[in-house]
Amino acid sequence: MCWGTLGTVRPFANFHSDLDAMEIQKALEMKDAGTLVRILTNRTNTQRQEIAKAFEEMTHKDLAAALKKALSGELEVLLLELLMPPLQYEAYRLQQAMVGIGTDEETLLEILCTHSGMELQEISVAYKEIYKKDLDKELKGETSGDFYKLLVALLNKDEVPGGVRRDIEALSATLNVKKAEAGPWIDILTSRDSDHLNKVLMGLELDIGQMVDQALEKKFSGDIRLGLKVLVECIQSPECYLAKRLTATKTPILQGIMVSHSEEDLLCIRTAYLKLTGTSLYTALQKQFKGDHLQALLAICRSED
């Protein structure tokens, strides 16, 4: 993506990968974190890949490995994340959400609900190349039941035509029984385009006389309730969902959202954050972080609202 879209990171004018690589080499020798931050946060991912290539040709060393050696802590993690190509980065975030004890269900949902079917196919390919495992099988090992069915349906999104009224009636019917079925929700919400689904959700709210998320809260429980509620939020306003996620979240998740969306729609997320909290994201970052790590996050955020 480039400037003129809704991203905050734009192509650096008068870009020369070899000059950047030379400056980075000197900064690594001097352990000058400020220079590393200035360069790597002010280049697009495509430009960063060119810098990494130029650095390797110049030094016969891997830039990511050199950063690991020179840095530590949260700044090291953030700059390494900025170096990952977008598809690899999303695959990495999915893997991190499943690795170790426990599963970060909401990060899985965030990624699967905010990418298109085509993007998710490419992320699945990247996941297989990096981790030598099928993403859908990994999801099956971490989740179960209706929640697993929802994640796999999201992973394999494929738009099929449907009638708005028919879809409204199908979803409404699940709410009029004692034990609601998740199947129709999964089938419909993962197989229609966003305009269609927004009409369905608005029509459903008129039919049932309450907000969809309130109905889901009453009728479902556990992971499937979380999954359907996040999916509905992302259909209605992905930027509002992501802004809300930024308000009460841990550093890895905040960084994940900012890096993932820096060249796509971080401006929209910033606007939603301001509306939601009354504080700009730029100001909020200054209250939570410090030092070179803060400067890197501010550079990605780009400016005050």
Results as ranks from 00 to 15, higher is better:
Val152Gly: 04
Glu119Thr: 14
Gly145Ala: 10
Leu79Glu: 09
Ser72Trp: 12
Glu90Asp: 15
Glu81Asp: 15
Leu79Val: 07
Leu63Cys: 00
Gln88Pro: 09
Ala52Gln: 02
Asn156Gln: 15
Arg166Cys: 01
Leu94Trp: 10
Gln95Ile: 03
Glu110Ile: 06
Glu56Phe: 07
Gln49Thr: 00
Ile123Ser: 04
Gln88Asp: 15
Lys53Pro: 00
Asn156Phe: 08
Glu122Trp: 05
Lys149Phe: 06
Thr107His: 04
Glu106Thr: 09
Leu112Pro: 02
Glu81Leu: 11
Ile123Gly: 03
Ala153Leu: 04
Phe55Arg: 00
Asn42Ile: 08
Met98Cys: 13
Ala52Tyr: 03
Glu76Arg: 13
Glu142Thr: 09
Gly145His: 14
Gly163Tyr: 05
Ile111Leu: 09
Ser144Arg: 15
Val125Cys: 06
Leu139Tyr: 01
Ser116Asp: 09
Leu79His: 01
Thr107Glu: 11
Tyr92Ala: 12
Leu108Met: 06
Ile101Tyr: 12
Lys61Asp: 01
Tyr127Arg: 00
Thr107Tyr: 02
Ala52Leu: 02
Asp158Ser: 15
Glu105Asp: 15
Tyr92Asp: 11
Gly100Arg: 11
Leu154Val: 03
Gln121Pro: 04
Leu150Phe: 04
Lys149Thr: 14
Leu94Ser: 10
Leu151Gln: 01
Gln96His: 09
Val152Phe: 08
Gly162Gln: 03
Leu155Val: 03
Gln47Cys: 01
Tyr127Ala: 00
Phe147Val: 06
Leu135Glu: 00
Leu155Ala: 06
Asn42Thr: 13
Thr103Trp: 14
Glu105Cys: 08
